[in-house]
Amino acid sequence: MPKLGMESVRRRSLVEATISAIHTRGSMDVTMREIATRAGVSLGLAHHYFANKDDLLTSAMRAIMTDYRTQVGEALAGADGPHERVRAIIRASLAQDQFNPEVVSAWLVFYAHAHRSPRARRILSIYTRRLHSNLCHELRQLVGERADGVAAGLAALIDGLYVREGLGTARMADSDAYRLLDSYVSLQIAAGPAKTASAA
């Protein structure tokens, strides 16, 4: 009889092995056999849980984004006021579980994979919309109608840091990365809301 809970453990092990293999290869040029070996399970068992490599890659994407969503929720729960809540989202984006070499490599590969996989594209679309919505909700109270543009700028900066980290170019310490993002937000807040045209 299979042990209770072993399916979720093995699924998670295969997902983590996928992320590790992607980081080692620097691409999606990994096989189900390689992933199964890393996870310590048979190839047959890997195929029992995941139909094919694309299914496994999609599950890895979902797992990373679920972890990120959990971290954002926990960070927001302890934040007071819109500026602190924006900072909480920044901290979650740079948390050790997200901003580490293996996960960063996986993010970059997933972005490339989304160009040819509709499933991957949908998952990334959900992530980008949710991040933008969370940021806009808080920024609207700080910069008014400029919230949409400021949120887009902050998301682009976060993506840029991930790209640099993944490529190994101009890497920054976590604390420096946080200060860079926070200074951008602070400058945008200092600039105030959008100016409306005066009535004639």
Rank of each mutant, 00 (worst) to 15 (best):
P2A: 14
L4F: 15
M6D: 14
R10C: 11
R10A: 13
R10L: 15
R11K: 15
R11A: 06
R11N: 10
R12C: 09
S13G: 15
L14F: 10
L14I: 12
E16R: 15
A17Q: 11
A17W: 06
T18K: 08
S20R: 15
S20M: 13
H23W: 14
T24A: 13
G26W: 11
V30D: 09
R33P: 01
R33V: 15
I35P: 06
T37I: 11
T37N: 07
R38V: 04
R38E: 12
A39V: 07
A46S: 12
A51K: 12
K53M: 01
D54Q: 11
D54M: 02
L56N: 02
L57Y: 00
L57F: 01
T58S: 12
S59P: 00
S59F: 00
R62D: 08
T66F: 07
Y68P: 00
Q71Y: 03
Q71D: 11
Q71I: 09
V72E: 04
A75V: 02
A75Q: 07
L76A: 01
L76E: 06
A77K: 14
A77R: 12
A79E: 03
D80L: 06
H83D: 13
R85A: 00
V86T: 03
R87Y: 05
I90V: 14
R91D: 15
A92L: 02
S93W: 01
L94I: 07
A95E: 07
N100K: 09
A106V: 09
L108A: 08
V109K: 03
H113L: 14
A114K: 01
H115W: 10
R121W: 00
I123V: 15
S125W: 00
I126N: 01
R129N: 13
R130P: 00
H132F: 05
N134T: 13
N134S: 12
L135N: 02
H137E: 13
E138R: 00
L139E: 03
Q141F: 10
Q141P: 01
G144M: 02
G144W: 03
G149K: 11
V150G: 01
A152I: 05
A152M: 09
A152L: 13
L154V: 06
L157E: 09
D159R: 07
D159A: 07
L161F: 04
Y162R: 11
Y162T: 01
Y162I: 05
G168K: 06
T169Q: 10
T169P: 01
M172F: 10
M172D: 04
M172W: 08
A173F: 07
A173M: 12
S175C: 08
S175M: 08
D176L: 11
A177L: 04
A177K: 06
Y178D: 09
R179I: 10
R179C: 05
L180M: 14
L180P: 02
D182G: 02
S183N: 10
L187R: 11
A194W: 06
K195Y: 12
T196Y: 06
T196V: 14
A197K: 08
A199I: 10
A199N: 12
A200Q: 08
A200L: 14
A200K: 10
